[in-house]
Amino acid sequence: MTRIDAKFAALKAEGKKAFVAYIMAGDPDLETSAEILAGLPGAGVDVIELGLPFTDPMADGPTIQLAGQRALDGGQTLQKTLDMVAAFRKTDDTTPIVLMGYYNPIYNRGVTRFLQDAKEAGIDGLIVVDLPPEEDEELCLPAQEYGINFIRLATPTTDDRRLPTVLQNTSGFVYYVSITGITGSAAAQATDVGPEVARIKSATDLPVIVGFGITTPDAAQNIAGVADGCVVGSAIVKEIGAGKSPAEVLEFVSGLAAGAHRA
């Protein structure tokens, strides 16, 4: 059982929904990013998604793109990101961390070396948005051999013919993208999301977590109410990009987490 599996089992036993928060590693700089990362569990975050900066983030909107550019400009690398996680693990051995990004930096490092290093650092799951199920032998299956969950995205355009393929080797949870388009581009609506989550849950026992388009505590509550939890990324990253202090960012995150946990 991975940390992700254990976390969702514990939440289910408590009758609680999950709150997942995304930040970009190294944004706006390594020290500030590490401080925010360390504070997320105390702010109510159940699962952390840690973005891996990349030069061509095709699925991300301007907010996440700019965060990645700030991180890269500050010298953030894959190794520094893994080192951040290893430092986090010295004081927190239970909060799951999912590394989210693109395949190029992983491929460049070498899959086997990357998986060994990720496991040692304390990474629990991967979301690699540019590797479709047809490429599962590339990274998905090897990752699971290392005990690292491979989390797949489903979208409003994932129809009933495509869904079984998407779910086939997915583990940890299913990330349902609530809107079509890039991150931060529209608001998620529970009335639209609910039936889609039900459709996915009829095909899998995995938790279904909804992301994209969630910016307020009320929205977090509404979306978590029709799923197993919700993800907030762009809204948090926007606070970081505005130059807010780690304490101010974590206060904002705490409000979102409280909203999700009210669901």
Results as ranks from 00 to 15, higher is better:
residue 44 G to D: 06
residue 159 D to S: 06
residue 119 K to L: 02
residue 117 D to R: 14
residue 24 M to D: 06
residue 138 E to A: 08
residue 222 N to T: 02
residue 29 D to M: 14
residue 109 R to N: 13
residue 6 A to T: 13
residue 238 K to V: 02
residue 259 G to F: 03
residue 210 V to T: 04
residue 260 A to M: 05
residue 28 P to Y: 05
residue 125 G to P: 11
residue 206 L to V: 11
residue 204 T to V: 09
residue 249 V to G: 05
residue 179 I to K: 14
residue 243 G to T: 08
residue 49 E to A: 04
residue 10 A to D: 15
residue 52 L to A: 08
residue 193 V to E: 10
residue 235 A to T: 00
residue 51 G to S: 08
residue 149 N to G: 07
residue 127 I to S: 00
residue 108 N to R: 15
residue 42 G to F: 09
residue 216 T to P: 06
residue 71 A to Q: 05
residue 206 L to Q: 13
residue 207 P to Y: 01
residue 30 L to P: 02
residue 129 V to G: 06
residue 1 M to Y: 08
residue 252 F to Q: 11
residue 228 D to G: 02
residue 5 D to Q: 14
residue 166 V to W: 00
residue 105 P to E: 12
residue 26 G to D: 11
residue 71 A to S: 12
residue 40 L to H: 03
residue 62 P to R: 01
residue 198 A to Y: 04
residue 146 Y to W: 12
residue 84 M to Q: 15
residue 184 G to I: 03
residue 36 I to P: 13
residue 57 P to S: 10
residue 105 P to N: 09
residue 16 K to Y: 05
residue 211 G to C: 09
residue 197 V to W: 12
residue 10 A to H: 08
residue 187 A to V: 07
residue 89 R to V: 09
residue 221 Q to H: 10
residue 255 G to M: 06
residue 38 A to G: 01
residue 190 A to R: 10
residue 215 T to H: 09
residue 211 G to F: 11
residue 253 V to I: 07
residue 108 N to C: 01
residue 9 A to W: 00
residue 23 I to A: 09
residue 8 F to I: 06
residue 158 T to G: 08
residue 174 V to C: 06
residue 31 E to Y: 01
residue 117 D to H: 07
residue 243 G to F: 09
residue 135 E to K: 07
residue 182 I to M: 13
residue 25 A to P: 10
residue 134 E to L: 00
residue 155 T to D: 00
residue 25 A to C: 11
residue 143 A to V: 05
residue 181 G to P: 05
residue 127 I to W: 01
residue 161 R to Y: 14
residue 212 F to I: 08
residue 178 S to C: 01
residue 23 I to C: 15
residue 118 A to V: 04
residue 154 A to L: 04
residue 227 A to F: 06
residue 11 L to T: 03
residue 253 V to C: 12
residue 97 I to S: 11
residue 117 D to F: 10
residue 261 H to S: 00
residue 227 A to N: 08
residue 200 I to Y: 14
residue 39 G to N: 04
residue 64 I to E: 02
residue 192 D to W: 00
residue 113 R to N: 12
residue 129 V to F: 03
residue 61 G to Y: 05
residue 125 G to T: 01
residue 248 E to Q: 11
residue 209 I to H: 04
residue 193 V to D: 07
residue 159 D to E: 00
